Amino acid sequence: MFKRFVIVQYPELTGYQQLCALSAAMLHIELGGPQKYAGNKINSNRYCFGNLPSAPDIDRALSLVKAAMAFWLILLSAIPVIWIALRWFYAH
């Protein structure tokens, strides 16, 4: 994903910041900027890859998150099933 959506504007980013920049690039929107947590204002970088997000952009983001969660749940449940099937196969 990082190779497909090259984040050349922000090469110094790490961890969570790279994920925010990648999400902004995938959705072609602007993410970041000042945020409030428990009443405290925190400044953060803006990642501009398009316009400000709108309601349809939020819906697209939620569908991407749901697809990613489904992928990981299927993967995590498939690994034990495959392991049990292989143990049963080699035991008989």
Rank of each mutant, 00 (worst) to 15 (best):
A85M: 05
G39K: 04
A91S: 08
M69H: 14
F5N: 00
Q9F: 09
S44N: 12
G39D: 01
Y37N: 15
K3D: 07
L62A: 15
N40D: 13
K41G: 09
M69W: 15
V65N: 07
I58A: 11
I7H: 03
W72A: 11
F89Y: 12
G15M: 02
L75Q: 06
D59T: 13
K66H: 10
F71M: 07
A85E: 07
V8G: 15
M1C: 10
C48E: 14
K66N: 15
S23R: 00
Y47V: 03
L76T: 01
D57H: 10
I84N: 10
S44F: 05
A68Q: 07
S44Y: 10
L13V: 02
N45V: 08
C48D: 12
A85D: 08
A70G: 07
L31W: 00
L13R: 02
I7S: 01
I42A: 05
G32K: 02
V81A: 08
T14W: 05
L76Q: 01
K3M: 12
L75N: 04
A61E: 06
W88V: 15
Y37P: 06
N43S: 14
I42Q: 09
A61F: 08
W88G: 13
W88K: 11
I79A: 01
D57P: 04
Q17V: 00
K36C: 09
P80W: 01
Y90N: 13
T14H: 01
L13N: 03
I58G: 10
Y37S: 10
F71Q: 01
Q9G: 13
Y37I: 15
L73D: 06
A91K: 09
E30N: 11
V8L: 13
K3C: 09
R60E: 05
L31S: 03
Q18G: 00
I58E: 09
M1R: 09
P53N: 05
Q17L: 02
V81S: 01
S44T: 08
L22V: 03
A25M: 02
I82T: 10
F89T: 12
G32V: 03
D59K: 14
P56K: 06
K41P: 04
I84S: 13
Y10H: 06
G39F: 02
G39Y: 03
W72S: 12
I58M: 14
L52R: 12
I42P: 07
S63M: 14
R4D: 06
Y10K: 04
Y47K: 03
L76W: 08
Y16C: 05
H28W: 07
Y90W: 13
I74M: 08
F5D: 04
F49L: 00
R60A: 10
S54H: 14
R60V: 02
L86D: 11
A38I: 11
A25H: 00
W72R: 13
I84F: 13
L13Q: 03
L73N: 07
Q35T: 12
L75K: 06
S54A: 15
A21M: 00
A68R: 11
N51F: 13
G33C: 06
H28P: 08
L75C: 07
M1G: 10
A68I: 06
